[in-house]
């Protein structure tokens, strides 16, 4: 069962370009009955940039957050951004795995009167917290406005799936797809659900980045998605803000809105779109939201077994 309060590390993006994620997280937490208590004086995780320049300061930058969270008495730290999640989780794990690294990092932390013992703080992603701690059964009872008729592509991106999967699979996770079904929506097949959004590529090598963005949007659109749902501000930014640039490059006209998972969850909990930051996206989400129907879609007829066809492999439960 869920706690009353979680120590929360929002990350820089949620303070500016991904306000929408922050407000939907807060309102969804309130609706579900738990608090996200922002840890004191957290700093940037360094994204992917710092590790490229100087390894040890990069670890020290991240470890400052872990050490301060531990000093606050937190044994868990909840992170909504996949990149922040990865850096915090990876630093904790590698400090435990490589004692020499832990020693050097702690030597650096000592200059700020801090120390971090790896394993003290369990770093968790918000989506995993909501799904594991509250659970599908409980969530189902909280749904007041089911998302009937809405077709969603569950976009996990890289960094919650890899290198350390917090979901069921690093390659083909299905947990968020199950969440959508609980919310009454339909989860469309999505081969590129863990394909990278390009990270900072859109900034430093635009065509490389736009091509990756285009592949993802195309795959979701071709599978009939009304929206792509993400758990990461970087993914949202790339797929949303650069969608038109990618369209121009490939001479296409996809208009697939990119929503955060707490935004669709919030809609199903009966929250107003404006409370969930909907309206801040570049590709307008309202046409998709307006598709939500009052009644569940008719159950697809069970197809008769094709006498000629060979059976598909039987999947284990």
């Amino acid at each position: 069962m869920t706690r009353q309060a979680y120590t929360y590390y929002p990350g820089c993006s949620l303070q500016h370009r991904s306000h929408a994620y922050e407000s939907s997280n807060r309102n969804v937490a309130q609706a579900l009955g738990f608090d996200l208590v922002e840890m004191d004086d957290w700093n940037c995780c360094g994204a992917t940039e710092y590790f490229s320049l100087n390894r040890l300061p990069a670890y020290a930058l991240v470890a400052r957050n872990l050490a301060r969270a531990a000093n606050e008495g937190a044994d868990e730290l909840v992170v909504p951004c996949s990149a922040c999640f990865l850096n915090l989780h990876k630093t904790d794990k590698q400090m435990a795995q490589y004692p020499d690294l832990a020693r050097s990092v702690n030597q650096a932390l000592a200059a700020g009167d801090l120390h971090y013992t790896p394993g003290t703080v369990r770093v968790r992603h918000l989506v995993e917290v909501i799904i594991s701690d509250i659970g599908f059964t409980e969530l189902a009872t909280r749904i007041t406005r089911p998302l009937y008729g809405l077709k969603l592509a569950a976009y996990y991106g890289c960094l919650i799936a890899r290198p350390d999967s917090i979901f069921d699979s690093t390659e083909h996770p299905t947990t968020m797809d199950r969440l959508f079904e609980v919310l009454g929506a339909e989860s469309v097949p999505f081969a590129l659900k863990t394909f990278c959004c390009g990270g900072h590529m859109a900034q430093i090598s635009a065509e490389t980045g736009f091509e990756m963005i285009h592949k993802i949007v195309k795959n979701a659109a071709e599978n009939g998605a009304d929206a792509i749902v993400t758990v990461c501000p970087m993914c949202q930014l790339n797929l949303d803000v650069y969608q038109n640039s990618a369209n121009k490059l490939f001479d296409t006209d996809y208009q697939v809105p990119i929503l955060f998972f707490t935004q669709v969850l919030g809609l199903a909990l009966g929250l107003k779109p404006s409370d969930l930051g909907i309206g801040q996206e570049f590709v307008d989400a309202m046409p998709a939201i307006n598709k939500i129907s009052e009644v569940p879609p008719p159950k697809p007829k069970r197809e008769r077994r094709d006498k000629q066809a060979l059976p598909m492999p039987v999947m284990p439960e």
Binding site: S169, E171, H172, M312, P313, M315
Partner: peptide
């Protein structure tokens, strides 16, 4: 199926 990226069980 233990190597999901090969699609066995998913891709007919």
């Amino acid at each position: 199926r233990r190597i999901p990226q090969y699609g066995y069980g998913r891709l007919a």
